[in-house]
Structures are given as C-alpha cells and as structure tokens.
C-alpha cells in the first residue's frame, strides 16, 4: 500500500464564505483574499500539507 490507496485527508478549510458551516474539519474564516492566502501558506507549512483551490473562494489543506 505504499504507492496506492486512499491516504488523502482534508486537514483544514480556509474560506471567504462566512456561511460555510464548521463541521468535522477545522474551518478558518478569512476576511479577504490576502488573509486567506497567508493562512493557507502558514497552515500548509505547519502541517506539511498542500493547498488546493476549489475556486469558489475556499481553499482546502490536504495531506497527501
């Protein structure tokens, strides 16, 4: 199972959408795009994970 299998996990959600409910996964609300990018960078470095853009104002941090 070294090379294949489901090991991805969403570690955090960073969003501009304040109606995004928090459930199960930590959600970080950002007030603008700059803050969102900054939180995403910090979290990805802290968690050694990757930032993915869902292109609806929401980023997710995923461990691969």
């Amino acid at each position: 199972m070294d090379n294949i299998g489901i090991k991805e996990a969403i570690l955090a959600v960073i969003t501009l959408n304040e109606h995004q409910p928090a459930s199960g996964v930590p959600v970080f609300y950002a007030k603008d795009e700059r803050e969102r990018d900054k939180i995403a960078l910090y979290l990805s470095k802290i968690l050694s994970a990757m930032v993915h853009d869902l292109e609806n104002g929401t980023y997710i941090i995923v461990r691969h």
Binding site: D37, V51, D53, I60
Partner: peptide
C-alpha cells in the same frame, strides 16, 4: 494536480 497557493 490542483495547486491552490498562487505563489507556488
């Protein structure tokens, strides 16, 4: 892949 961070 999807690269979210703009600087990357």
């Amino acid at each position: 892949m999807n690269v979210g961070y703009p600087d990357s």
